[in-house]
Amino acid sequence: MSTGTPGRHRRSRKKILLAVALPTALAAGAATAAVGIGSASAAVAVPKPDHVVVVMMENHAYKQIIGSKGAPYLNSLAKGGAVLRASYGITHPSQPNYFAVFSGSTQGITGDDCYNPGSMSAPNLASELIAAGKTWGSYNESLPSEGSTTCKSGKYAQKHNPWFAFKNVPTSSGHTFDRFPTDFTELPKVSFVVPNLCNDMHDCSVGTGDSWIKNKLDAYAVWAKTHNSLLVITYDEDDKHSGNQIPTVLYGQPVKAGSAPTTKYNHYDMLRTLEDLAGLTTHAGKAAGASDIAGVWN
């Protein structure tokens, strides 16, 4: 009996050590897994910039802009910021894409005809911002007057300004472009800039539009780089020859310079990202099922 006792004691000690070590190991593994999950979540989380300015350009495919000698300024922003290598419009022609990126739906619009101002009530980026107590505005080049809901005026086209269609968006938030602040701290939380039919590259050259962005928005881009703010430049649709792949460039302090993710994104993903950048908890239309843009944030 005495000779067997030490062996039993050793076996007992082994069982006790195993009983202690196993939960510890499992806990450590769970902690490691939790760290991994947290890191993954952090990797796809979006920042919370103070201001976001979105510029909508027209009718050019990715390859017509990115890498093109005709767009030196846009390419400089892409180099110093981020370019999405697989960004896509939703459809053709222009107008449904504007509604998609603003409200998460084309709202049944299939053409470029003028809509009835104030005829829609669906949730949209502006109504969500306003409901959350945040600020919104649009700056529309060649708009004949503040809050004008006119269909056409010179180089201005209502089809590129979906906000006037919604009764839950004040027409007073639709500004002429000359109201774009020079003191950028006065900008809304989120705003859209829409050049006229020449400067958005619809009627005029790539170089014309590229120069317009440089002349009108470079000061903001420089400021955004050091003031927790963001500039987004994207397009409504391509030239109908590249599967609706469009250029999309992001620039500012929250953006990781030189990033160029290849994940496929569209206008609904852009809307989802804008909503989350603004800290909104609601998502309009198909943005609710869309993805935040990832791989571009510091």
Rank of each mutant, 00 (worst) to 15 (best):
W163L: 02
V44W: 08
P72G: 03
P93M: 03
D183V: 11
Y73W: 14
P247Y: 06
E186R: 09
A71P: 04
K167C: 07
I233Q: 02
N215W: 01
A100R: 06
A257F: 03
A86H: 10
N140V: 15
R8P: 00
E237V: 13
E141C: 05
A131G: 07
A290M: 07
P6K: 06
W297A: 04
I213Y: 08
P195E: 12
K256P: 01
A28F: 09
E141D: 09
R10N: 13
Q245S: 05
P261F: 02
S142R: 13
G38T: 06
T110V: 12
F180N: 05
C204K: 08
S119G: 11
D183Y: 12
I16Y: 01
N124F: 10
G67M: 02
V249S: 03
R11V: 03
D50T: 04
P72L: 01
F180M: 08
P123C: 05
V83Y: 00
E128T: 09
M1D: 06
K167Y: 00
L129H: 03
H92E: 07
D236A: 09
V169F: 02
N266A: 14
I90Q: 06
N228F: 08
L274M: 15
T282N: 09
Y115Q: 10
A157L: 14
K216F: 00
S173W: 00
K69R: 03
T282E: 11
V53S: 00
N298W: 01
A257V: 03
P23D: 12
Q253M: 12
N266K: 05
P254I: 04
S127T: 05
S39T: 14
G104P: 08
F184P: 07
D113C: 01
S145L: 07
V249H: 03
A61Q: 07
T32E: 14
R8L: 13
D269R: 10
V249R: 00
T282K: 13
S127A: 14
G154R: 01
H60R: 15
F177T: 09
A257N: 05
I213E: 15
